[in-house]
């Protein structure tokens, strides 16, 4: 199976490579349009800031390439946010695959909530209202989050997580999938989600 990881100016890609290798797949980390188009699966991972990553994608023509892909595509972390319509981070127009706004977490005012809600949302939290094949064999799995921005809930939400408010932990529309959590670092359940994606 040919799996392409989109190469752009976002960090933390090495752990996705290792996670795929643990599943017996050696991915190609590339920004070559032909290689990406011809891959069986495409992964769009990374950590970064919305406006600078989006500008880079546009400069390389990767923005148009991604939205026109026909094979299963999986966005991870900033990948999910860039696949939405717009992000509050840097007031950035994103790819618009999912018709959702990405917002910054705002801590509630209540004094006693202080030690409950820290930002970033960092650590293990549960996915609920799980829908679709990406959750095959899993029951509301715990996954590892590190993020300060979140996608709101919408028609394309395929899994939710509750932190300050319920947000989209997983999105799906046609061949496009996206997860906010670092499933490549989410233990055996995260690995199962990645394996489920590879089996689509």
């Amino acid at each position: 199976m040919k799996v392409a990881i989109i190469r752009y100016n976002a960090g933390n890609v090495q752990s996705v490579v290792y996670a795929l290798e643990r599943l017996g797949v050696t991915p190609l980390w590339t920004d070559d349009h032909e290689v990406i188009k011809n891959a069986d699966k495409v992964i769009f991972p990374g950590q970064g800031e919305a406006s600078t990553t989006m500008a880079y994608l546009q400069q390389k023509g990767l923005d148009r390439l991604i939205v026109n892909l026909k094979q299963p595509v999986l966005g991870i972390c900033i990948g999910l946010q860039l696949m939405c319509r717009h992000s509050e981070e840097g007031d950035t127009n994103c790819l618009g695959i999912f018709d959702l706004e990405v917002k910054k977490f705002v801590r509630p005012d209540a004094k006693n909530a202080h030690d409950q809600y820290k930002i970033p949302h960092m650590g293990w939290n549960r996915l609920e209202n799980c829908q679709g094949k990406i959750f095959s064999g899993l029951n509301n799995p715990y996954v590892y989050y590190v993020h300060s921005f979140y996608a709101a809930i919408g028609a394309e939400t395929a899994g939710t997580t509750d932190y300050i408010l319920p947000f989209s932990g997983v999105l799906q529309k046609g061949n496009f999938y996206a997860v906010q959590a670092h499933i490549e670092k989410s233990g055996d359940d995260g690995q199962k989600m990645l394996a489920n994606f590879l089996e689509l």
Partner: peptide, 8 residues
């Protein structure tokens, strides 16, 4: 470690 372990 990164190759072998699937937690942060």
């Amino acid at each position: 470690v990164a190759r072998e372990v699937n937690i942060p």
